[in-house]
Every structure is written in structure tokens, then in C-alpha cells.
């Protein structure tokens, strides 16, 4: 960790994002503390996935400020002027932020092991032997030690998502982003992915999780934010928000989900 003082891992100040004329994020303020599991919930179209994608600059924000570990995302500030970062520099920022996608997005032309080895070798310049050894360990950790040589098409959805988590962990991220990691899975495969995420949370990883798994949020989450219509409606400890929602919109949403 770069700082001894407990600065937040993610800090959003009045973050706005529009796609054309449609304003998806209408001023998001929040802080994710180091080592916490931060859950984002809300109806589809509420902007939670978009916000997550802003954190690693897959989407450019239109207004406000977004910091990861004290560093401005996607820009450099000199005086009162903001400079866009070069693609190289953006890539540099991203390598410390792991991301897990709803649809896995594994590289289909590579085996599970090669998927996990790719970024350490190509981005960090790790040696092949080194990367292979670490990748094998990571696959072991997500319970797929015997699937190293399989291509993604030969794995179940749950297994693919676990490989995707191992792939993100291979870069030793300080922050992990999960974009509805279990939404594309058959119900009986959800558990194995949540187990891996629970393990990860226990190891002290800072995690921002967009999810519809209220059970997971209640059990593992440290904070929870309910978003609707591009704004934060309600936030607090998951147990409090989920069992005692204050807002009508939160109540309506939870009544539908639970």
C-alpha cells in the first residue's frame, strides 16, 4: 500500500456520466474504504454498472472527480487545468485494478492457464516460468487446479468466472471490481463463484461488487449503496439497509428482489 494514512481506496465526488443526451450518473458521491467489501445494488438501468466501469476508466466521466488510492482516474491535474492521460498511462493505472465481468470475457483462444498468465507476462514482463507457476497457484486457489489446460469453451460458466477472477488476481490488484459476476450463471453455479469471492473478501481484498445477490451482500458486505435513476438513494451497512430500508424506492426494489 502506498499510504499509511487510511485514505479511501475509491473516492467519488459528484460523478456525472452521459451517453449522448441520456444522463446515466447524476452526481455520485461515495467512498470505498481500504479492505472493505462495497456492494452496489439497484434496479437495471440505475447506473451501477456504469459507475463501476468509470472506476477503471472504461467509461470517461463528464463531470466530477474520481480517485483511486488518492490518484485521479484518467486525468492529471496541474494547477486548475486537467490533462487527459495517454493510453499508456491509463493502462498503467488499470493494471492495479482487477475487473470481473458479467459475461466472463475470457480469451477464448487461450487455455485457462494462458488466460491467467497473459497479463503478468505482457504487462509486467514477468518470465514465462514465473507466470506459469503463479497462474497454476491461482487456479488452484479458485479450485480449478485440474483445469489448467482447458479452453474456456470447455468449462462451465461458474468455472469460467472463477478463471476470470484468477486472471484478475494475477496482476496483484489493490482493488477488485465485480460487475454482476453471477448474473449470467445457472442458479446451481452461483454458489461456487460466491465462495471464491467470500474467500477473497476474507483475505482483506478491497472489493466493489455490483450484484443482485442480496444474501451475499448481507453476509459478506461491509457497506451497501442502493442506486436508482443515476443517484445514490440510500447507503449504510448491508444488514441495516436490507432489513430496514428507509426510502420508498429501496423498499419497492427489495420487495421485488427478496
Amino acid at each position: 500500500m502506498t499510504s499509511l494514512s487510511k485514505q479511501p481506496m475509491v473516492k467519488a465526488e459528484a460523478v456525472h456520466k452521459s451517453f449522448g443526451l441520456i444522463e446515466v450518473l447524476k452526481g455520485i458521491d461515495l467512498e470505498v474504504q481500504q479492505g472493505e467489501v462495497f456492494c452496489l445494488v439497484g434496479p437495471s438501468g440505475s447506473g451501477k454498472s456504469t459507475f463501476l466501469r468509470c472506476i477503471n476508466h472504461l467509461e470517461k466521466i463528464n463531470a466530477g472527480r474520481l480517485y483511486v488510492d488518492g490518484q485521479l482516474v484518467g486525468y492529471r491535474q496541474k494547477g486548475d487545468k486537467l490533462y487527459e492521460l495517454k493510453e499508456r498511462e491509463v493502462a498503467d493505472q488499470r493494471k492495479d485494478i482487477g475487473m470481473v465481468f458479467q459475461r466472463f470475457n475470457l480469451f477464448p483462444h487461450m487455455t485457462a492457464l494462458q488466460n491467467v498468465m497473459e497479463a503478468p507476462m505482457q504487462v509486467k514482463g514477468e518470465s514465462k516460468a514465473n507466470a506459469r507457476e503463479r497462474a497454476a497457484k491461482l487456479l488452484e486457489r479458485v479450485g480449478l487446479g485440474d483445469r489448467k489446460g482447458n479452453y474456456p469453451a470447455q468449462l462451465s460458466g461458474g468455472q469460467q468466472q472463477r478463471v476470470a477472477i484468477a486472471r484478475a488476481l494475477a496482476m496483484d490488484p489493490k482493488l477488485m471490481l465485480f460487475d454482476e459476476p453471477t448474473s449470467a450463471l445457472d442458479p446451481e453455479l452461483v454458489g461456487e463463484v460466491l465462495d471464491v469471492m467470500r474467500d477473497l473478501a476474507e483475505s482483506g481484498m478491497t472489493m466493489v461488487v455490483v450484484t443482485h445477490e442480496m444474501g451475499f451482500a448481507r453476509e459478506v458486505g461491509d457497506s451497501l449503496v442502493f442506486m436508482d435513476g443515476g443517484v445514490v438513494v440510500e447507503s449504510g451497512h448491508p444488514r441495516d439497509v436490507l432489513s430496514n430500508p428507509q426510502h420508498d424506492r429501496t423498499k419497492a426494489f427489495l420487495a421485488n428482489v427478496l
Binding site: L58, E87, A91, R94, I97, F101, L106, A119, R167, A168
Partner: peptide
Amino acid sequence: EAAHALGMSP
């Protein structure tokens, strides 16, 4: 997106 998220250059 996955490649970019891993920090790979364009």
C-alpha cells in the same frame, strides 16, 4: 475491455 482492464496497451 477485458484486455484493457488488465492494463494491456491498445
